[in-house]
């Protein structure tokens, strides 16, 4: 005869796993709440304009202008993209279209390792190699927009390569075959067919690379020179939003500390916008 058994443990497991899944949301919520909670009061007290558009950063004397840092953050990010995007895209094309199986077996782990090297090590080697190079051949102190862009450009390579590689690989084979059948050369096929089809994925890789560059901290502190003004040439030193937080957080108190959280709020907003564009504006299109 058929009997009825009960499995009550299942409900408990489901409940626990639901809590686990919700924990990520909780953490995100906490991060937002606590950074906003600390960072917003100063915006209300001093004024949004005076902080975001203010030029003078003297937090112990009630000047909290971070405009130069906002500009600097975007400058290094743009610089990193100028260096990292073409190089990264070329590597992705090479990996998917040109490299043999053996080269791939060697290149892919090399790229993963490149992604795994800590940012402090990148910063250190930037100081050893790039900074003197810039100083000796181009002038200035070497701690500059240019040096920072170069190092960040290299640091975002793995992100750009792996995501654009995925986008290029997912272009259907028939597109390629069709193009070859029409008599196109390999490069014509890549240029006219593959890159346009993989466009949104490649764009997503650039934007995620930007996200990584704008959020990078330790390497930037070591190379950027951290000067408090808007750089007027690529050889000028600069201070980014991230650098500002990391340089002063350890000893800041009172409004000074709050102002670093305000800097964090600005950074958080920029990052969320970039992520949103990359994940939900572009990636989704790729998947469809």
């Amino acid at each position: 005869m058929i009997k009825k058994y009960r499995f009550n443990k299942e409900h408990l497991v489901r409940a626990i796993l639901t809590v686990f899944a919700l924990s990520s949301l909780l953490f995100l919520f906490l991060i937002f709440i606590f950074i906003l909670f600390e960072g917003l009061p100063l915006f209300l007290k001093i004024g949004l304009n005076k902080i975001i558009l203010g030029f003078k950063w003297a937090p112990t004397k009630d000047s909290f202008g971070i405009f130069p840092m906002v500009v600097s953050s975007f400058l290094v990010t743009f610089g990193a993209l100028v260096i990292g995007a073409p190089l990264g895209l070329s590597c992705a094309i090479y990996l998917s279209e040109y490299s043999g199986k053996k080269t791939k077996m060697f290149l892919k782990p090399a790229l993963e390792l490149l992604a795994g090297i800590p940012s402090v090590v990148y910063g250190f080697l930037g100081v050893i190699y790039i900074v003197p190079l810039v100083r000796n051949y181009l002038g200035g102190s070497g701690f500059s927009l240019l040096s920072t862009s170069i190092v960040l450009g290299v640091m975002i390579l793995p992100t750009i390569i792996s995501i654009s590689f995925d986008a290029i690989v997912s272009v259907p084979k028939t597109y390629r075959e069709g193009s070859f059948a029409m008599g196109a050369t390999k490069w014509q096929t890549i240029y006219k067919v593959i890159i346009p089809s993989a466009k949104s994925g490649i764009l997503a890789s650039f934007i995620l690379g930007m996200g990584r560059a704008i959020g990078e901290t330790m390497a930037v502190i070591m190379i950027a020179g951290n000067a408090l003004k808007i750089p007027t040439s690529i050889l000028d030193p600069l201070r980014t939003l991230t650098g500002n937080i990391a340089l002063e957080l350890a000893y800041a108190t009172g409004d000074h500390r709050l102002s670093l959280f305000s800097t964090g709020v600005v950074l958080l907003v920029i990052i969320m916008i970039l992520n949103y564009i990359a994940n939900f504006g572009i990636k989704r299109k790729v998947l469809k």
């Binding site: 005869m1 058929i2 009997k3």
Partner: peptide, 20 residues
Amino acid sequence: YIDDIDVINDDIEGVSLRRQ
């Protein structure tokens, strides 16, 4: 109905059914 139990409408878990 399997024996006396309506496996679609009665309160019986699928897992319990597949034990048998």
